[in-house]
């Protein structure tokens, strides 16, 4: 079957078997290996990607189910050479040791901050409660996400780029999940609001 989706802002059409999971589609077909594949049972959360701006465990979503939707992987976090504040935060606060859980943690953090720009420690811990860091570096992960919340400067830069994208997209409804740049323009709107 044919699937068409937007991955990190780029429209992609591929021919796949219906049973292909989104995590394998991203890693093996698109060769975006930043998304990690861990427990295979929707427990560990290292495969988290954003679907229309919302974190999902891509080992338990069929690529077919993502047809018509906007996917953001860890490769889509940075804007050109400018890191997302979440990425910067993980650097500043040593939010990773082995790095295996990091892509999923950072995408969940991005979605959290898009909806709640000033989360407290409890809200951060709840947001990442479906993800496992086997290095048990949770304290530094929480600090990294706090750092990102306190330093939205890079996000503002990212915002400008996303808003420009949204403006060039005015012919489409921003309310439909299928709209290619919806996830990004929604999060940009929320930051502005």
């Amino acid at each position: 079957m044919q699937v068409t989706m937007t991955v990190n802002g780029t429209d992609i059409t591929e021919e796949i078997e219906p049973r292909v999971l989104l995590v394998h589609f991203i890693r093996d077909v698109l060769r975006l290996t930043g998304t990690h594949w861990g427990c295979d049972t929707s427990n560990c959360g290292t495969c988290v990607v954003l679907m229309d701006g919302q974190p999902v465990k891509s080992c338990t979503v069929l690529a077919a189910m993502a047809d018509g939707h906007a996917i953001t992987t860890v490769e889509g976090l940075a804007t050109g050479a400018v890191l997302d504040p979440v990425q910067q935060g993980f650097m500043e606060e040593h939010g990773l040791q082995c790095g295996f859980c990091t892509p999923g943690m950072m995408l969940t953090a991005r979605a959290l901050l898009d909806h709640n720009p000033h989360p407290d420690d409890t809200e951060i811990r709840q947001a990442i409660s479906g993800q496992i860091c086997r290095c048990t570096g949770y304290a530094t992960i929480v600090r990294s996400i706090k750092w990102a919340a306190e330093h939205p400067a890079a996000a503002e830069h990212g915002d400008t780029v996303q808003s420009d994208t949204a403006q060039s997209d005015t012919g489409q409804s921003h309310n439909t999940a299928q709209s290619s740049n919806t996830a990004q323009s929604q999060s940009a709107d929320e930051v502005h609001a």
């Binding site: 929707s42 959360g45 988290v48 919302q54 974190p55 999902v56 465990k57 338990t60 979503v61 969940t108 709840q126 947001a127 409660s129 479906g130 993800q131």
Partner: peptide
């Protein structure tokens, strides 16, 4: 029920 990410689906 499950965790926040599973609850999204």
């Amino acid at each position: 029920i499950a965790d926040p990410i599973v609850r999204n689906r």
